[in-house]
Nucleic acid binder design. Structure first.
Lengths: 166, 166
DNA sequence: CAAAATTAGATTGCGCACAATATGATTTTG
DNA sequence: CAAAATCATATTGTGCGCAATCTAATTTTG
């Protein structure tokens, strides 16, 4: 229970300040769903889900990462990744093996099928780009704006966490 | 690595075109998670989740909507909303009742507690705005850009669906 | 070196999200 | 008006996402 400034009613918010279409969070939430739904028919033929596809993207950048490294790259924890990676292994895209040097760690490696999938990903990416209906420049601009926003939100969380631990 | 196999690739994608931080979808996905994590400590004291909060926002705009109308506003179907609304009812924010005129429909109505929560929402919204670290103008700009993107993606889905049905 | 602390993953439980399906109410049509 | 089609919602099954907890391996410390 942090004591915040006594802002019971700091400002009279505009009457429609709480309208759904005024909330940036909702615009982000909706866009995320829209991407998911657009990816689904493209990934279904390969038996992949969108988060599984993200893991493959991550491994194509650097194969042989640990679960922890993947989690850091994707912003996911082991509670999400452990079962997801099991499914990815069951469908033949990756293999998991304990690191001999440090048996706490699990190394995730692409299989031949996993590497081969990268060829298909180019077409998927093109299709998504087309579906977004934005110019390359607009995509990059939006991308970096969202990355800044995400960084700001994360910084706020860390600050609050530190405050709570103090 | 510059020379790719002369495959069926329409265009030679830049070698890092599949890098995670180049994917707009991933920026959106990450921002959505970041919002969720920022909202969580603000909503936890009220026993609300973020999607439940969205339902309340929607009802504050117009109370007494049907499940279908809520689904249209939020982009969710009954498979998601039915159990969510049950939980919202169990925690006392809403009531659900069959429409007497058309017993197929369920009308969702705010309780006193549900209406009272709107007072708290102002402070939550301010806190989120602060955490986003963006100016009002930047927020609105980003909001409308994302709304256009979402509309484009949805249009593509509908086109594909129509194509499949043809 | 042995005990304590830290670390990496896995597991459990709950809630969201969606496809597919089921049920019951209403509308359309023959 | 009765059968068929449509509609609104609920249910089931699968997968993501996260908090909390557990286990085993490694590192730190006394």
């Amino acid at each position: 229970m942090t004591d915040r400034p006594p802002n019971t009613h700091p400002d009279p918010l505009p009457p429609d300040a709480l309208a759904l279409d005024r909330q940036l969070c909702f615009a982000v939430y909706s866009a995320a769903h829209a991407f998911n739904r657009t990816y689904k028919p493209l990934l279904d033929p390969y038996g992949l889900t969108y988060p599984q596809y993200l893991v493959l993207l991550s491994l194509w950048e650097e194969d042989g990462r640990t679960v922890k490294a993947l989690g850091a790259a994707l912003g996911l924890d082991s509670g999400t990744l452990s079962p997801l990676l099991k499914r990815l292994e069951a469908s033949g895209y990756i293999r998991r093996a304990r690191d001999r040097a440090d048996e706490r760690q699990v190394i995730v490696t692409l299989t031949g099928k996993g590497r081969a999938m990268q060829e298909e990903a180019g077409a998927i990416r093109m299709e998504i780009g087309r579906a977004s209906g934005c110019s390359l420049a607009a995509l990059e601009e939006l991308n970096s704006t969202l990355q800044r926003l995400t960084a700001n939100l994360r910084a706020g969380q860390e600050a609050d966490a530190a405050e709570g631990a103090a």
